[in-house]
Design a protein around this nucleic acid. Structure first.
Lengths: 221, 221
DNA sequence: GGTTCAATAATTGGCGCCAAAATGTTTGCA
DNA sequence: TGCAAACATTTTGGCGCCAATTATTGAACC
């Protein structure tokens, strides 16, 4: 009863990470190794290796002699991750504006349009994938590959699961609009505008709440 | 013939990572599993697990059926990592200035003084540890724990190995001075100055070359 | 004498089994 | 009937062995 087969065992971590992020396993769920090897058609050793790596990525938590369970990050961690993403992605904005060309813009318009289509017609998972595709393409404009890798990892760890992220139809439609606002800012080579849209998009709040560079929160007492 | 024993298998990755960063294994060296289990007194399974996690951290590279070898990052990666560190640590400067208190400053002065002592009397590894201790204490001033974690990881991955980092006595002495400059900036609650010193410290170059916020490099043609 | 090919030795990597621990269930007792 | 203790089942986790692949050595041939 294998739902998804990972062609290479190397990619099992990615498939599992995607399932966790997409909300297939809800936070707190205990991930039994037998279930996982059935579901993914993998050997026990591969499952254990993947679990270890997911624990290193903080996506799951390991309790000795009890197993692995999906890690639900508390509000503080979610806040911290979101702030780091804003720092990095807004820092990359200037670089992206400097690197973008017409072919990039065409690609991005196509991917943004596809996301908008799927708002109406697609499943949650399809929307998730289309959103990722857009953002990966966007990040590729940044010439700092390490920054891209870190942002991608944070995106996976943060509360970006569709289940928790796109709570309302209004919110997901707003995300679609923001995609086009990013493209417009890129086309205009307007780094400041791009930073504003990015920060707002990451905050998942209206533009009016977003400032370009916002100091981190103080230590909570 | 176990050189270092890892009390808990959980920490084997950390010990190995530290050895790689400290230059015990030079880049390119093939890490034979048998040698590793002898050196660290670990089982083969633990060694393999640690190797996998180090590969995930990009500290070693895996070649199927040939083994793992220490990964030497090219100049571009080193650049990218350094730039990300500058972005994150300078972004944290304001937060650190806002959080610091007198007890923190005392700790930092003590650790900075210890580093300076070890410049004269200590081994390279002792200097390495003292330097890490100072920077860990400094980073603890930042209330964003995720940012701290990422910076620590980058610090491990970057070209921060003593062998490559502190090429000259002049350079390591300059590092010691910069530690105190950071403390002075913190004591004065001067975030701008702290950013300048941090950026220069990470760049390992004189202050005159460092700007507060420097745009990332363009895509190289 | 140099090159190629084959046999040997060494190393990696996967697979499975079995012990230890924990959870859930049943049974006995007050 | 409620609680507690012992048993059975499930699940994790470690350990070792053996096959597959690669490096190395030696020999034969050109």
């Amino acid at each position: 009863m294998t739902v998804k087969t990972a062609s290479t065992p190397e990619r099992l971590v990615d498939v599992m990470a995607r399932d966790i992020q997409a909300g297939v396993f809800t936070p707190g769920t205990w991930l039994k190794q037998i279930d996982l090897e059935n579901r993914y058609g993998a050997t026990r050793m591969d499952v254990r290796r993947a679990l270890d790596q997911l624990a290193l990525k903080r996506l799951v938590r390991h309790v000795p002699n009890r197993g692995y369970h999906v890690h639900a990050l508390d509000g503080r961690q979610a806040n911290d991750i979101r702030d780091v993403r804003i720092i990095l992605e807004t820092a990359a904005a200037e670089n992206m504006v400097g690197n973008v060309n017409d072919a990039d813009l065409d690609d991005l318009r196509r991917l943004a349009a596809r996301f908008d289509e799927l708002i109406l017609t697609g499943t949650i998972l399809e929307q998730y994938d289309a959103n990722i595709a857009f953002h990966v393409r966007l990040l590729k404009l940044c010439s700092n590959q390490e920054l891209v890798n870190i942002v991608m990892e944070l995106r996976g760890r943060g509360p970006s699961a569709p289940a928790t992220q796109w709570k309302t139809r209004a919110r997901i439609e707003q995300s679609g609009r923001e995609h086009f606002m990013m493209i417009d800012a890129l086309a205009a080579r307007d780094a400041v505008a791009l930073r504003r849209v990015l920060a707002a998009h990451i905050r998942q709040s209206g533009l009016e709440e977003a400032s370009v560079i916002q100091p981190l929160e103080r230590k909570s007492g």
